[in-house]
Design a protein around this nucleic acid. Structure first.
Lengths: 195, 195
DNA sequence: GGGAGCATGTAACGGGTTACATGATTGG
DNA sequence: CCAATCATGTAACCCGTTACATGCTCCC
């Protein structure tokens, strides 16, 4: 067994990385931005950054992943002790976790990009439905994409201030562009449908 | 029970649509392009069109969906009888299936678009890894996106010839654009990383 | 003869979701 | 005081995947 929570020899570290589902890496990634975080915090982070280019895991899943990471020794937790009950379990990445995420970043080839575009699915099958409704639906989607772009832009500005978030800021800039391109592509599509 | 494979009254048809997973609708959509198809055919179709903007369900899943559609009365099947054994089950959409997919197209709001961009996830967490490796990985992805664009373009040209595929052709044109935009966005990203 | 493609199916597994349940704290 | 937010956790469920198994047909 590789990750048993105790000391890990250099040999073990250089051998194999654990095979983890994408969500695990994403959550470990959030923890890698330093600072202790509760499951609740992780959820908020995910909704405000990950969600733009990856996806937002459900609340229950996040707690599951945090427990998994701790079991593997990639994270530790302590219970915050304030005055009363208000239990809040704070997780942080371990040094093993840091080594492992570094190897993940450098060595594990990225999985294929997943796109499930329900609007294009409907366009593709548009011979079954009403074209005007489709157009209206596409226009609504375009407007929504622009709002998403604005949200990403706002978050990107927030990240800009701290140089530690440099890359996460750039990822959010990318997300903004993605959404604007997406909106422009819908405009193109609407014109194309009239031709 | 709404869909029991027998006669369905007008009242039942106007009441509720069955709640089906996205894959069901996608497979029913493939069947809606007329013609009888085997599970194997459906899989090829999915790989060559759906995969560009949605995703390619696994072979086993497709057979499962076809059985489900038949159970619900949205499709029927017959076994093709050639000389010898070589059994091949051909599915086709029923008139109930046509009515139901029409209502799906017109009435069921599209689910949110799913994007799981593993490359941006890595960028976002790039403080954990080596920047040059990331750049190389991004360049490889950009080249791959351009190849995908070429493939979509080729399929789009194929669809153009049959006016029945008009919308599926446009969906493929959209896919081509998507991939070219994606490549351009990666180029922007590479420059942005140098700044 | 043998490999590639055609064709279908089962079984195990797990990742992730929804729904439910509970309770503390804070602010209007 | 009540609603919203903070905070965590369990249980049921199922979609979809991988792996495995089988056998035909066509063509070199």
């Amino acid at each position: 067994m590789l990750f048993h929570g105790g000391q890990v020899s250099a040999d073990e570290v250089t051998s194999e990385l654990p095979e983890l589902p994408a969500t695990s890496w994403a959550v470990l990634g959030i923890l890698s931005f330093d600072s202790e975080l509760s499951g609740y915090d992780v959820k908020r982070w995910a909704d405000q950054s990950l969600a733009f280019f990856y996806w937002a895991p459900s609340q229950s899943q996040i707690y599951t992943e945090l427990r998994r990471l701790e079991r593997l020794g990639l994270a530790t937790s302590r219970v915050e002790q304030t005055h009363a009950a208000k239990s809040r379990r704070l997780y942080s990445i371990t040094s093993l976790g840091r080594r492992v995420i570094r190897r993940w970043a450098d060595e594990v080839p990225p999985e294929p990009v997943v796109l499930k575009h329900s609007h294009i699915l409907r366009l593709w099958a548009a011979h079954n439905g009403d074209l005007d409704r489709l157009r209206a639906s596409l226009r609504a989607y375009r407007d929504q994409a622009l709002r998403t772009a604005d949200a990403a832009e706002a978050h990107a500005r927030g990240a800009q201030r701290e140089s530690a978030w440099r890359f996460s800021g750039i990822a959010l800039e990318w997300s903004e562009r993605f959404s604007r391109d997406e909106a422009a592509r819908i405009d193109w599509l609407l014109e194309r449908l009239d031709a």
